[in-house]
């Protein structure tokens, strides 16, 4: 009987085998093969020729690559700050007891998150078209500007529009995450604060925000990983004036699948991977440091 039990546990390998088989063929294989290709020159038809570190040397001198890193960071920062502010504000409001129809509001705010990113990109490109878009028509009707704003003529405005697509697409998701965090805070903490005479603002600062910390860290890390990889929406907007909305993955896509420089594209892919790993490690390290500081005080 005992021996039979030990025997059974080995069946587990059969259950997980397909998962790993597909992982090796369709995931790990391509990743390792990309690594090999990043040391070659390959245009797709001939056989790849080994060129050593040439692609990586080129990457370090590629001003457009550094520009794409800068653009991605700017777009990420422009989207993450209002996104988290709005998400947190809405979560705090929707957590209040007197709000009715909560589910409807959850649904409305979360809805943009499900819409195809490509569709979002096209929709915003159309809305912010300077001659035909409704954005200019609305702000001109409201009397905010007299002449149509040429959004995609200014590098900053173009980045702002890409950032606002991301903001619009993700604030509802983050709002739900924050709401889940709020609901996990025990009710008696608030009751105790009320007895001690704390007002709404004080409880928000002293109780709610510190207890939301783990949730905030989760959203920060996921949004760093996601934000570094934005592609679908900015591709629909285009590269923008002075390449201002060219993101890192767009740069990879253009090298490999527009100019057919597969070897160099693979080097860009590994460059992006290193940057994402560093950014993730950095954001984890930041949260650790803050934890230590607060532990001391």
């Amino acid at each position: 009987m005992f021996a039979g039990k030990i025997d059974k546990s080995r069946y587990g390998y059969l259950f997980i085998a397909p998962f790993f088989l597909v992982f090796f063929i369709f995931d790990l294989g391509p990743i390792l093969y990309s690594f090999y290709l990043s040391f070659t020159d390959w245009s797709g038809f001939d056989t790849p020729s080994f060129v050593g570190l040439a692609n990586y040397e080129r990457l370090l001198q590629d001003t457009l690559f550094f520009k794409s890193i800068y653009n991605t960071l700017v777009i990420w920062i422009l989207s993450i700050i209002p996104q988290l502010t709005i998400a947190l504000t809405l979560a705090l409001i929707l957590h209040e007891k007197f709000i009715r129809g909560k589910h409807l509001f959850h649904a409305i705010f979360y809805f943009p998150n499900m819409v195809t990113p490509v569709t979002m990109g096209v929709l915003f490109a159309l809305i912010f078209d300077w001659q035909n878009g409704s954005a200019n028509k609305i702000i001109m009707a409201l009397g905010i500007v007299d002449d149509p704003v040429n959004w995609f003529n200014s590098p900053f405005l173009a980045q702002l529009i890409v950032a606002s697509i991301l903001m619009w697409q993700w604030f509802g998701f983050n709002m739900l995450v924050f709401l889940a965090g709020l609901q996990s805070i025990p009710e008696d903490l608030y009751e105790a604060a009320e007895i001690d005479g704390a007002n709404k603002f004080q409880t928000a600062i002293k109780i709610t925000l510190p207890l939301l910390r783990p949730v905030l860290i989760f959203t920060m890390i996921t949004s760093v990983i996601g934000g570094m990889q934005i592609f679908d929406q900015p591709l629909m907007i285009g590269k923008g004036p002075e390449n201002s909305t060219l993101t890192m993955v767009m740069h990879l896509y253009e090298a490999a699948f527009v100019r057919y420089e597969y070897g160099y594209g693979a080097a860009i892919a590994y460059g992006i991977f290193v940057l994402i790993a560093v950014a993730t490690a950095f954001s984890m390290w930041m949260t650790k440091i803050r934890e230590k500081k607060e532990g001391v005080s």
């Binding site: 790993f20 391509p30 390792l32 990309s34 592609f231």
Partner: peptide
């Protein structure tokens, strides 16, 4: 192996895209 599976979640999707195409 389970820890390994969780670690693969951190790999960005575009890392292997060129090798994927070629394979």
């Amino acid at each position: 192996l389970f820890a390994f599976v969780l670690a693969t979640m951190m790999i960005p999707g575009q890392l292997g895209i060129i090798g994927f195409f070629k394979l």
